[in-house]
Simulated scan of single mutants.
Amino acid sequence: MEFRRALAHEWIKFRSVRSTVWTTAATAVLPVPGAVFVAATGSLQPDDTVLGGGLTFTVPALILAAVVGALVICGEYGSGTIRTTFAAVPRRGTVLAAKATLVAALLYALSLPAATAAYLTADALLDGDHAQGDPLPALLGVAAAFSVAGLLGLAVGTLIRHAAGSVATVIALLLLPSLLGPLFGEAERWIAGMSPTAALEKLIQSSDASVDAVGSLGAWPSLTLVTGYTVLALSAGTASLRRRDV
């Protein structure tokens, strides 16, 4: 009962804050114009698939999803309403669980149709010279990657509590592994594949998802790895939330 009440409160707060609403809307809208852009400019690589080209803009959309997760909690710390939240729901773990449920469910529900629409748009606009790719179950994994990115942003926001610092940190976590992976020799396949961005590029079968760029882990192992450390980050955030005065 307490969790259901906390979830209802989180939904009310979420849709009343413009920054989270508009960032979430941009996350859902971005993939389809990206597919149109790729088709209009003829920028699809010869070795790319329709799926990979159509979902090109899911990468920046994924970054926005992580920002949404961070803003869900950092916004409350910035405005001071987090005190009211904890007064209404004293169990802080329940508060974070409600936020995580809302972020994960909302991003999944929005990103799955958005990614599907982007793929269908690319399929309709592109010529038949490119391979289709395998949209299923890849599209389901893409939506899951968005949820994981949002939860990672929530975990970082819970630990840092400052919006600018949290956003900068979570963007670094999404982008740096693929850039720094080659510096770690044999461990590159783990380092480069440990971000939601790497998992996403593998899932959409992008020509940019080479072993050198995002590691040699497959799409689903990469997503599993990312999910695992996101769960650990959320656990650390929960412990931190319970120890602090606010």
Score class of each variant (00 low, 15 high):
Phe57Pro: 02
Ala124Pro: 02
Ala98Lys: 04
Thr94Arg: 08
Leu120Arg: 15
Ala114Ser: 15
Asp134Gln: 14
Phe86Asp: 00
Arg83Trp: 04
Gly141Phe: 02
Thr101Arg: 05
Pro113Leu: 05
Gly75His: 08
Ala70Leu: 10
Tyr119Thr: 05
Val59Gln: 13
Leu55Pro: 01
Leu139Asp: 05
Pro113Thr: 05
Gly141His: 01
Ala88Lys: 07
Leu139Thr: 05
Pro60Met: 14
Gly133Trp: 02
Thr101Gln: 01
Leu136Pro: 02
Pro137Ser: 12
Ala118Ser: 14
Ala87Glu: 11
Asp123Trp: 04
Leu125Asn: 07
Thr121Trp: 06
Ala104Gly: 09
Gly128Leu: 10
Pro135Ile: 03
Val103Lys: 01
Ala124Val: 09
Val72Ala: 10
Phe57Lys: 03
Gly54Phe: 00
Thr101Val: 15
Cys74Gly: 13
Ala98Pro: 00
Thr81Ile: 13
Leu102Asn: 02
Ala131Phe: 05
Arg83Leu: 13
Ala105Ile: 10
Thr116Gln: 13
Ile73Ala: 01
Ile63Trp: 12
Ile82Ala: 09
Ala138Asn: 12
Val95Trp: 00
Ala124Gln: 13
Pro113His: 05
Leu136Val: 14
Thr84Pro: 00
Ala109Thr: 13
Gly53Ala: 11
Leu125Phe: 08
Phe86Ile: 07
Thr85Gln: 09
Ala118Met: 07
Val59Phe: 09
Pro90Met: 02
Thr81Trp: 08
Ala122Asn: 08
Ala61His: 07
Tyr119Pro: 02
Pro137Arg: 11
Gln132Lys: 11
Val95Asp: 01
Tyr108Gln: 08
Ala118Gly: 11
Leu107Arg: 01
Ala124Thr: 14
Ala114Thr: 10
Thr84Asp: 13
Thr94Phe: 01
Leu136Glu: 12
Arg83Phe: 04
Cys74Asn: 14
Glu76Trp: 04
Thr56Asp: 06
Ala97Leu: 14
Leu55Gly: 04
Ala100Cys: 09
His130Glu: 03
Ala87Gly: 15
Leu107Val: 08
